[in-house]
Amino acid sequence: MPKPNDYAILFDASRCIGCKSCQVACKQWNDLPAEQTQNRGSYANPLKLSGATWLKMNFWEGLKPDGDPYFDFTRGSCMHCTHAPCVASCPTGAMAHREGGVVTVDQSACIGCRSCVQACPYDAVHFDEAKGVVSKCTLCYDRISNGDQPACVKACPTDALTFGRYQEIRAVAEERVRVLKERGYPRATVYGLNELGGTHVIYVLTEHPSAYHLPVALKEAEKRAGTGWLSAGIAAAILGAGLKFIVERREALKGGEK
């Protein structure tokens, strides 16, 4: 669990209007270049996060079973996990938790092995070809450590994004879900409380997280590696014994027949 006093961002999908102010503010504050994009029939643009895009809004549009249209938005960026797979998989300590639970990468120590890129279940860490290192959302550590809000939060015109201490932010989220349930959103829920030890960015959603392709029941990278080592040990023992049998025992059997 994040500590009560950790930094946290709440994204309240029920208040978001999909204006992408946050997406633009992120680019401006972090001095990230524009990307060539393409219209794919959705407002979601660009298609994926990248070394130059640390935050992008996802758009979910279609018809509900009863025929009513829906047009929902979710925030795509680093979730600043408590048991962050990117941190666990980093071989040099470049990717690490800073004060307040924020996950950032020290680009002067990063060797560009991309372990973290492969490990992130939110696809939030990306390789910067030009610099040869990875980059990601810093939760605007330069701003928040100076008492300011993250750029995305500051730019949000509808209070869909709020920033504060984890304990307060979580209480706001849980209260909001209670209200939403009363107002006819029975599936309203808080996302990020259980994922990877609790994330420092949490969502209020009106539908189940899977409706927005958000990963649930995530396994920590350490556990995945543990399973891997265990399986490798068993495999080495069994295959080794099998090989020994093929090489020696069959030889002996043949010898016996002769």
Binding site: A88, S89, C90, P91, T92, G93, A94, A109, I111, C113, S115, A221, E222, A225, G228
Partner: peptide
């Protein structure tokens, strides 16, 4: 840096 940065046994890399 792989060998000089510290002890990171959770990282398979």
């Amino acid at each position: 840096n792989l060998f000089l940065s510290g002890f990171y046994p959770s990282s398979v890399m």
